[in-house]
Simulated assay, not measured.
Amino acid sequence: MNKHEKLNYLELPARDLASTKTFFTNVFGWRFTDYGAEYTAFDNQGLEGGFYQADLVSRSDLGAALAVFYSTDLEQTLAKVEAAGGTVIKPIFAFPGGRRFHFTEPSGSEFAVWSEPAAN
């Protein structure tokens, strides 16, 4: 449901739309709708959005915003990311609110996944 003045849609660059779609389908179960050869949209993922064909990438070290997923099993999600061709660029680390890791998907854009602190 669209809500007044709330985040509604996120657009991200992708060098290789086909590889990006395959990656997000395999890891997170996303579905895509293509709008021509240079744009694909996703929905029903907490925030709707799309990927557009671009030579650039979205990386936090370049000043881009960082999209962060939540996982109840951080190690399992990390294994799925690696198995699907993602590259872990920051291994699991603790932060004041929990634990997380950062990865790039096959087109080179960065994402992160977080979870609650590990049980002692």
Rank of each mutant, 00 (worst) to 15 (best):
K3C: 08
H4N: 15
K6S: 10
L7N: 12
L7T: 13
Y9I: 10
E11T: 13
P13F: 06
A14I: 07
R15E: 09
K21N: 02
F24E: 02
T25W: 02
N26V: 06
W30G: 02
F32E: 01
D34P: 04
D34A: 15
D34H: 06
Y35A: 14
E38K: 15
E38Y: 15
T40Y: 03
A41H: 09
A41Q: 10
A41T: 11
N44K: 01
Q45D: 00
G46T: 11
G46H: 10
F51D: 01
Q53Y: 08
Q53N: 14
A54Y: 00
D55W: 04
L56K: 15
S60K: 05
G63W: 04
A65K: 08
A65D: 13
A67Y: 10
V68W: 06
V68C: 12
F69A: 06
S71Y: 00
L74Y: 00
E75N: 12
Q76K: 11
L78S: 05
A79G: 12
A79Y: 06
A83L: 04
A84G: 08
T87F: 09
I89E: 01
P91C: 12
P96A: 07
G98T: 07
G98R: 03
R99D: 11
R99W: 06
R99I: 05
T104S: 10
P106V: 09
S107K: 03
F111W: 11
A112N: 03
A112G: 01
V113E: 01
W114F: 11
E116K: 14
N120Q: 12
N120P: 05
